[in-house]
Design a binder for these strands. Structure first.
Lengths: 197, 197
DNA sequence: GTCTATACACCGATAGAC
DNA sequence: GTCTATCGGTGTATAGAC
């Protein structure tokens, strides 16, 4: 994690260094608290106490920085999902990860940015594919182990669960709660069948 | 629809006039095709063939224009939902409205902007509340009429359906289709029970 | 009503010193 | 590695003529 880069003859800062991480931390904070409009090189520099020029020493463009921010975050999230997958109660743990760590605001900012930044869109697609794979495996295994029959395939159940998890976090952030409790009850009843104990 | 306004002594263009609508049309198009970053007064003026100054004759600020764009669009959407609600097959019609007209890109742009613009966030909350009311009523009535029993309340079913409808449109736009077919099958099976014919 | 012209702030990105 | 300084561009918004 100390690879120096050189792009088109320009000296670049080491990937994975303290400043590098600090800048991504700053980007995350700004995105979460102020939104994409405030995510500028100057704002990031101010946030972590360096000069604006330094941002361009570590990242070739602002878009690069944004993509890297998402990449680091999604890697972290996938690691959490993998860990949950291998826990004693995979389904409940995965549900907890989906509901508690997916910051709805951050997600909406990245989704909007993915519209414009092709590399980011590719990363988003990769993240959704990868996380869904983990979830589908977990559900398929739980169905087999518990002998539960369902009209819905593991892939279908996964889409259902992730959809409502995201909707619940998004709406909660907006102060909307209609139907949330009822859906949670259904999800937990389903998990009681699939993952007893 | 011809109310002239005056704000802080500044002459303002008539709400509902041709130019007023043209500007909102332009804003929608730009948001859909280029994203929020491209939504500027200059870009809108260019889009509809007027000078940039005119945008500020019809709208006090860009944020006002954005809020108005969402307001007009959500009113249109609510009208569609109401019409679907009173059709022969309300559930199927409402599902069609949710899946086909909710442009996932536009939604993500507005959600991201709502982070920053308080008035927009209020409009978004109002829209979600209003549309959900219509949907819950439709489902409750269908359950009663068909005598269908369900573990899930109408509000819960509504949240489930709207969540997956949005997820399906969003993911389709990204080229992801895992589980989509299976979930659609479940939804349609459910509607076969609730709304025979 | 619609325009020209413009003030002013801020942004991304780079050159080059230390 | 980190900095000062700066260029060129673009954004919001307003004053005031026609």
């Amino acid at each position: 994690m100390d690879t120096k880069q050189e792009v088109a003859g320009r000296r670049m800062g080491p990937v994975g260094s303290d400043n590098w991480h600090a800048m991504l931390d700053g980007a995350e904070t700004i995105l979460r608290e102020e939104g994409h409009a405030a995510l500028t090189s100057r704002r990031i520099a101010e946030q972590i106490g360096v000069k604006q020029r330094l941002v361009y020493y570590y990242f070739r463009t602002m878009d690069d920085l944004i993509v890297e921010t998402f990449r680091r975050m999604s890697a972290r999230e996938l690691a959490r999902l993998s860990a949950a997958r291998e826990s004693a109660q995979p389904l409940r743990e995965i549900w907890a990860v989906c509901v508690h760590t997916a910051d709805a605001r951050l997600v909406s900012q990245f989704m909007a940015l993915a519209h414009r930044i092709d590399d980011l869109r590719r990363e988003v697609v990769h993240f959704i594919d990868a996380s869904r794979s983990i979830q589908v495996e977990a559900i398929a295994e739980a169905m087999e182990r518990s002998g539960t029959k369902s009209r819905v395939s593991p892939a279908g159940l996964t889409l259902l669960a992730t959809s409502v998890a995201l909707a619940i976090t998004r709406e909660s952030a907006l102060g909307i709660t209609t139907g949330h409790h009822d859906v949670r009850t259904v999800i937990f009843a389903l998990m009681d069948d699939l993952e007893p104990g």
